[in-house]
Design a protein around this nucleic acid. Sequence first.
DNA 1: GCAGAAATGATAGTAATACTATTATCTTTG
DNA 2: CAAAGATAATAGTATTACTATCATTTCTGC
Lengths: 227, 227
Amino acid sequence: MKNIHIQIEVSKELYTKNPDSSELGRKIISSSIELINEIGFESFTFKKLGATINSPESSIYRYFTNKQALLIYLTSWYWTWTEYRLVFAMTIVASIDERLNKCIEILTQPVEVDDDISYVNEILLSEIIFAESLKAYHTKNVDEQNKIGCFEAYKSVVQRVSDIVLEIQPDFEYPHMLISTIIEGAHQQKYFSEHLPALTDKVKDKKAINSFYTELTWNFLKSTTRN
Amino acid sequence: MKNIHIQIEVSKELYTKNPDSSELGRKIISSSIELINEIGFESFTFKKLGATINSPESSIYRYFTNKQALLIYLTSWYWTWTEYRLVFAMTIVASIDERLNKCIEILTQPVEVDDDISYVNEILLSEIIFAESLKAYHTKNVDEQNKIGCFEAYKSVVQRVSDIVLEIQPDFEYPHMLISTIIEGAHQQKYFSEHLPALTDKVKDKKAINSFYTELTWNFLKSTTRN
DNA sequence: GCAGAAATGATAGTAATACTATTATCTTTG
DNA sequence: CAAAGATAATAGTATTACTATCATTTCTGC
């Protein structure tokens, strides 16, 4: 995957004007990723973003109807890109068990190297996803947004990994529940370790959360196989 | 537990004036529970709440500094009350295994009967907890709020159930991770089943989420015991 | 039953947010 | 080089999230 520039296509429903189509649009994306990381999504406003990129907020509104739409765009970009990462990882891993392990690793650990040469900083973006992505769909407008396809990239990733689970164990009843529990759980455990450590456990190394969910998964799958 | 009126004491840090100490305070709590359920926490404002109880919003501000403080109060009330439920349940269940099962049941299923005669509707409150409680601690002020003890009730519940896990298996490394994964996971799976069903699995009955997390837990604990 | 205190009501006002609208200027591109 | 399209500059509105003031009601001890 190194040095290969992948063009991530984000569904047209997620923006008013495609930010990938102009200099200003790309600046909006790259600067918003930095700014959200710095001050958090709640404090983030289009006015502040405009100030950092020296453009009026009205120009930003031409790309996104509001800041939540921008967050949905970012999460969608992330999940589309993560699906590429998954697909690529599957091509170089032979055994089905190792494939699932690799998937869990990708889903539970923040990105640490920015391979891609583009205006999207994938390390910071993955931080945003871990810390704030639940704010993209925990809103009063979920149902409408879901209807127009705002969350298809995320669903697609869950489906893909669920399929691998089913390949390992075709009669498993809760593949999607398991995978979404792992993804959301890993995000939350990281948040807890940083802000509410009493809700998680002291972790020796960075891989602890990954280990936890990997073990959890295999114990679950192995046991139901035996029955 | 039937017909026993339990006085839930909420920590003084969570309010400006104790809502339990006056008629208006109790009206604020009971009406906010109904209103948040109706319109969701995001659309909920003190102005709207004032309109429904025929009091000016400034009077509500005498009890809570803002709507987020009120949500923290509600979640704290819920977890304090849930700890009573857990303690009570433990007294009538003999075996340690059955105790853990009962805990998981209490943590993963919304409340269905309102036993208590009080101004708090526990059924609606549990709906709020499942749907919105993560908004209580997923904010820019978590750290300060955590410092003054806003989340002690939740932590206490996680600790209590973690202790049961450790009683079953003293060398288990991730009891808190497991319990908070179960609690938050159950909340999210319910949300997904209502709004983003592609992220979960078709569930036959109301107990499906409970069954999933119960199985998950026992498979995890049984297997590490064997090692 | 009444003075004083405390709580509540009524009303007004402010700063920030989340937009929308308009017009001017710059920048492409045919 | 002219027309189209994009962006900048500026202004304005509605709502939210508060704070402040003062009048009125209610409570409480004597």
